[in-house]
Amino acid sequence: MRFKWSNVVLFFGYLFLYFPLICIVIYSFNESRFVSTWTGFSFKWYKALISDPIILRATVTSLKVAGVSATASVILGTMAAIIIARWGAFPGNTLFLGAITAPLVMPEVVMGLSLLMLFVGMESFFGWPSRSGNITVIIAHITLTLSYVTLLVQARLQDLDNSIEEAALDLGASPLKVFFVITLPMIAPAIVLGWLLAFVLSLDDVVIASFVAGPGSTTLPMIVFSSLRFGISPEINALATILMTILSIAVIMSAVFIYKDGNIKNM
C-alpha cells in the first residue's frame, strides 16, 4: 500500500520537474511560430538559429569566457583547497574561508553590482581591466565559481588519506612532485567535476555578466534573456534543446566517469 503511494509521489514529482522541459523539446520541432497549433515537424528553427550571426557570436564569447574562467577557477580552487585541507591555520584563515565560500550565498545582483563598482574604480586608477574585452566577465565568473570548485576539491582532499603524501615526502620526493604524482591523480575526479560545474555556471550566468560586460562581450544568456522579455520565441526552443542535449550528455558522462572510478559516494 505504502509502496504505491510513494510511486505516485515520485511520478508527480518528476512530472513537475520534466514536463516543462519536454514541452520545450517538442515545440522546438514545430513548424508554426505559435504554441497553439502544431503544423508539422520541421528543423526550421534550428536552421534559423544557426544562421543568426548575433547568436553565433554570443555563443563563441560565452564558450570562451566559460572555458577560460573554469580553467582558472579550477587552478585557483585547487590551490585554495590544498591550503584549507592540508595546511590548517594560517593568519586570516577564517576570513579567507568565509570570503571564498561567500559567493555561494551572495545574491547575483549584489555580486554583479559590487564587482562592477570595483572594475570602474580600478579602471580609473590603473587603466585596467578595460571593459571593452571579455576580461571583466572572466574575472567575475572566476570569483563566482571559485567557491564551488574549492568546496568540491577540499571535500575530496579531506576524504583522502594524507599518510601517502607524507610517506612520499619522507622518502625524499619534492612537494611539487608529490602533488603531481600522488595528490593530483587522486583528486582528479573532483577537479573534473569542478571544471564542469564552473563551466556550466559560467555559461548559465546572466545577471553578473549583464552588470560587468562591456559592449563587445555580450554573452549568450544575455541575448536569451533580452529575447525572453518579449515572450515565447521558437528559436530559443531550438537553442534550449541543443543546450539541454549537450549538458545532459556531459553530466551523464561525468557521472559514468566518476562511477567507474568507484568514487560516487565521495561526490
Binding site: 516543462p20 522541459l21 514541452c23 536569451v224 539541454m244 545532459s248
Partner: peptide
Amino acid sequence: MLVVLPFWTSFLIRVYAWIM
C-alpha cells in the same frame, strides 16, 4: 540524478519553460 539533471540545464531555459 534525475533530480539534479534539470539543475544542470540552463537556469534561463527552466524559467523560459514556465513562460511557455
